[in-house]
Amino acid sequence: MKNKISRRQFLQVAGASAAALLLASCSGNSASSVSSSSVAPSAASSVAASSEAASSAAASSEATSTVTTTGKTLVVYFSATGTTEGVAQTIADTVGADLFEVVPSDPYTSDDLTWTNNDSRVSREHNDEGLRAVALESTDVDGWDDYDTVFIGYPIWWGIAAWPMSSFVAANDFSGKNVVPFCTSVSSGIGQSGDLLAELADAGTWLDGQRFSRGSSESDIASWIAGLNL
């Protein structure tokens, strides 16, 4: 015996079928329907990613804004390719410090920095210590005596601080200052570079330094500074 359906059930089924036909005619074909449904997860993911990025940026900004130092702070840096400059700028922004760039009177070119070439400038200077006394445009910092904390930044050359920084350190009196070395390199650590500069200065309280790579983030730098307890 066949099952019977009521008039009401018949109208519900008919209405659903009509709605399905109308939806199919509006969408055009099944492919466009699949395409439109696949956009939704992508959009949702994009919104979620944007929200996560915004939260991360806010957290980084909050961490940066809470880092402070006692007294007036200066960031001195020598940058051969721009990497050290980027870290120095981030440090200055993080603690509200002034910046001073160490600039050789005879700037280094990209050819000068080709350390794999024995005839390049840095190779010749490395092989002959007498050539490392690099003349600088200036070693005088306005208000030098007013700074309580000085960050000293440089790239690592052959395991030590790039020698233009040595020229700056030798020309200034670090008495009464907290000095924080930092360096940049592809793979080498900071090694004894900070200790050697401290010996050259023979004054000031020199803290342990830190090495940064090109990919170091602002939050990495801010976390390091927060741990210094300056």
Rank of each mutant, 00 (worst) to 15 (best):
S65P: 05
S79W: 02
G209C: 08
E218M: 07
F174V: 10
S50I: 01
G189M: 04
D98W: 03
S79N: 03
F168Y: 04
A80F: 04
S61Q: 13
K72N: 10
R132S: 07
R8I: 09
G28D: 07
D202I: 00
L21S: 12
G191L: 10
Q9M: 06
D173T: 06
D142K: 09
G194Y: 06
G204T: 05
D195P: 06
Q192M: 05
W157L: 10
D119I: 01
V13D: 03
A40N: 11
D173G: 05
L113Y: 11
A162F: 02
D145G: 11
L22H: 08
R8K: 12
I160Q: 14
T149I: 08
G189D: 13
V47H: 04
G191D: 15
I160H: 11
W163E: 07
P41Q: 11
W163F: 10
Y77S: 02
S79E: 03
S37Y: 08
S42R: 13
A20E: 08
T81I: 05
W158M: 08
S188N: 14
V169S: 08
D173N: 12
T64L: 05
D119V: 02
G176R: 06
G143I: 07
G189N: 07
A226T: 09
A198Q: 12
N29Y: 08
K177Y: 12
V180Y: 11
Y154A: 04
S17V: 15
L131R: 08
N178T: 15
A40V: 13
F151H: 03
S123D: 09
F100Y: 13
S120P: 12
Y77E: 02
A44N: 15
F100E: 08
L207H: 15
R8G: 03
N118G: 13
A80Y: 05
V122L: 12
L207P: 02
E85D: 15
D173P: 06
D111H: 06
T68G: 03
S65M: 05
Q89E: 13
S216W: 00
E199Q: 14
